[in-house]
């Protein structure tokens, strides 16, 4: 019995000794070309679509376009370089105050002006003032950008991965800089699932349909090659990764994906990184995040599932795409 207990304890120690690689210390992966162009846009035509978990038919009476993929690290680096040059953004520090300024901390990084939001004074609502806001923290070891002189560059290998560690202000500023905007949640949901419903009047829960398979999207249990490389939590995948190709990285085997675009041809609408939505909801300062990420289980990849956080928040699994 003593031997058994000792063996069990030893086993637990051995298992816990297998430490995963934190995202901050990850060695960049080799560059993988998915063949999906991050500069491309898809048109979503006007019309009714099933909204939310209850699939309530709802009308959007205008056409709009959305980016086929998340904004990539390279695209964001280009934006930073252009916006710095034009003087729209700068390096700086901003104070972030919460709970009636009872708690204040300072964030260092790229900042830009935001015109503020209407404040309703609702319970738990924080005021979003007109002032310089944090767009991305810098320097930051989780950021996939480097800066030499005045030039930002994507870390090689991550060029076509989604831009992460970006606040809602950072995402909004990017879109507005190019005369785009962040998609509203209604627009995002329609772009995600299209207009079809089944015989039970349910819209599709995932961009590719009703069923979910491990290699449909990058989520917590996708077992992709990045999970092989970095551990269970994995990492982002290049945008458009789940397009039916089989990928190989030396030493980590092959990974076969299923082609998983939305009905309008958008990739990564579910999984990879959360996507900021543009809505400024009344009575709250939270901005919503949609689509789930490589850190979440499949339940968060369903069309109607929402996440939300203050607009100054950034995380390694939060990104965005634009609409116009």
């Amino acid at each position: 019995m003593k031997k058994l207990i000792f063996s069990l304890i030893l086993l637990v120690f051995l298992i816990t000794a297998c430490q995963a690689t934190p995202l901050t210390q990850q060695v960049p992966p080799p560059y993988i070309d998915t063949g999906i162009d991050p500069e491309s846009w898809a048109t979503i035509p006007a019309g009714k679509f099933p909204l939310g978990q209850q699939s309530v038919m709802t009308d959007i009476d205008y056409d709009y376009e959305m980016m086929v993929t998340h904004v990539t690290v390279e695209q964001y680096a280009n934006f930073l370089n252009e916006a710095f040059a034009s003087g729209d953004i700068q390096m700086g520090e901003v104070d972030i105050a919460v709970d009636d300024r009872d708690l204040i901390w300072t964030e260092k990084g790229v900042t830009g002006y935001y015109e503020g939001d209407d404040y309703d004074g609702y319970k738990h609502e924080e005021e979003v003032l007109a002032e310089d806001k944090i767009l991305i923290p810098f320097p930051n070891s989780t950021l996939r950008l480097t800066r030499e002189g005045d030039t930002f560059t994507a870390i090689p290998g991550y060029e076509n991965h989604p831009m992460t560690m970006v606040t809602w202000f950072g995402a909004n500023t990017y879109c507005e800089y190019y005369d785009y905007r962040l998609p509203l949640e209604l627009e995002w949901e329609k772009a995600f699932r299209g207009t079809e419903v089944n015989d039970k009047s349910d819209g599709i829960p995932f961009p590719w349909g009703y069923e979910f398979q491990q290699n449909n999207a990058n989520y917590y249990a996708s077992f992709d090659i990045y999970e092989e490389m970095y551990g269970k939590l994995g990492s982002t995948t290049p945008v458009g990764f789940y397009n039916g190709q089989t990928y190989s990285i030396d030493g980590y085997g092959d990974y076969e994906t299923i082609d998983s675009p939305s009905p309008y041809g958008l990739y990564d609408m579910a999984g990879n990184v959360w996507q900021w939505a543009g809505d400024n909801h009344s009575n709250q300062h939270y901005r919503h995040l949609r689509g789930g990420s490589f850190m979440t289980y499949e339940i968060d990849l369903r069309n109607w599932k929402e996440n939300g956080v203050a607009p100054y928040h950034y995380d390694p699994d939060v990104g965005f795409r634009c609409a116009r």
């Binding site: 637990v12 816990t16 690689t21 934190p22 989780t142 551990g231 269970k232 939590l233 390694p316």
Partner: peptide, 18 residues
């Protein structure tokens, strides 16, 4: 933070499952 949570996640999940 989220960037450095993997070890914590692994170990606490192990505690729960165990």
């Amino acid at each position: 933070d989220a960037s450095n949570q993997q070890t914590t996640v692994n170990n606490t999940m192990l505690m729960i499952e165990f």
